[in-house]
Nucleic acid binder design. Structure first.
Lengths: 234, 234
DNA sequence: GTCTATAAAGTGATAGAC
DNA sequence: GTCTATCACTTTATAGAC
């Protein structure tokens, strides 16, 4: 903390965090050992336990470092939109923008490259036993409920469960896109191009906005099961 | 193999596979040890190595057991659709149906509950270092390219990279929905309801069909970057 | 705050008796 | 085909010297 006594104390802690972030992004939280981290950070094996108490403590730090800021910025952006527009519904595209734009703010705060940062975010939000610290989970659930209300307001007449499921599908598209964008490169044989971050965000918003508000013109046909379109001899 | 000598030989192998499938579905491929599997299967610790050569061998078996059938049925369904419709484009909804319907066929072949089966599929298709056996990967890439062509044909005027990215977003929605449907329950506080499998498929197809064909009426505005909609003081 | 040494438990895998 | 016993290795974590 003190800038006088030399940076080496805080520097090691910082190097550990950054090394962990890169490794977690690349390999996933499960496949990285404490030794991988300390080696990459050029620190001693015991450093992680000294600075963070345990491996789990370091994971918690890495999780909290970006999830909370992202979720809080999401809420702030949604607040600003709703304040600006008065009592009317905020258009779906604007709500989606508020949902993903914070990533571009936070990527600049990090020491990571864009690619690694987004992989890391995808892994965080995609993790199941995400075991978020209570404070982080609280903000997370709060944020989700606020957005559910905003989406519901933007799509009047749609039932709550339909809104939740569309949010789930939307989140899946986001998470998978972030965590596995390089897989697309591989499977498409390069035909997916090299889009800028802004292009990718745009594609995401257009795709999911259409999905979210689909059926709005024909609410009665909206969410009935379709059933098999084609019978098939299996 | 011989039904005479008693089923215990084949039974153990089968029990190991089923135990592995349930554990992999629940915890993910990385977090399950050989001992977890043999214990759950009521088999000896050495059984996995005897029957499958290694842990990795068992993982490969589990992966291949469903991925190949799913991908081959996808191709067969797409073939049938294209044969039926002649040279014209198959509508996006029908292509999507061919893409997801095979899961309902294969879930019946498995010994798993619907919930576990879909979690397992989500984990398989979501895995990064998916390390598919060569044969499986070949079918997989072949399948993807055929569907890319079908989608491109259904959405004339859309550039190849745009089609690939929409497929990626669509696949993300599918994978995340399958692997983490229970998370939705938790975060929505139960407000996401208890839909049937058919309802969930219907929701998926409607959502992604709208996303896939979005901008079709206004091709020129189609995929330009939108840029920030709202400036925000961060 | 950093290091070495080491503990304690878990990992996948195998040899050899039955 | 199944079992026990065990190997060789890795994992997280800690005690204690510096």
């Amino acid at each position: 903390m003190s800038a006088v006594a030399g940076d080496s104390k805080v520097a090691t802690k910082q190097r550990l965090i950054e090394a962990a972030e890169e490794l977690f992004a690349d390999e996933g939280f499960d496949r990285v050992s404490v030794r991988d981290i300390t080696t990459k950070a050029g620190a001693n094996v015991a450093a992680v336990n000294y600075h963070f108490g345990s491996r789990e403590g370091l994971v918690a730090i890495v999780l909290a470092r970006y999830i909370n800021p992202v979720n809080e910025e999401r809420l702030a952006r949604l607040d600003a939109l709703e304040r600006k527009i008065g009592g009317k519904p905020v258009p779906v595209e604007e709500v989606l923008e508020a949902f993903v734009r914070p990533f571009t703010t936070q990527v600049r705060r990090s020491e990571l490259t864009e690619k690694l940062f987004f992989k890391l975010m995808g892994r965080m939000f995609g993790q199941e036993g995400c075991n978020l610290p209570p404070v982080v989970e609280t903000v997370f659930v709060n944020m989700l409920n606020r957005f559910q209300k905003a989406f519901a307001k933007a799509m009047p007449g749609l039932a709550a469960d339909d809104v939740w499921w569309r949010i789930h599908l939307m989140a899946g598209a986001m998470i998978h896109t972030m965590a596995h964008a390089d897989t697309l490169q591989r499977f498409s044989g390069g035909d997916s191009g090299s889009p800028t971050l802004e292009q990718t965000l745009s594609r995401f918003i257009r795709f999911t906005a259409a999905g979210m508000r689909q059926g709005a013109d024909d609410p009665h046909e909206g969410e009935k099961p379709r059933g098999p379109q084609v019978e098939f001899p299996f």
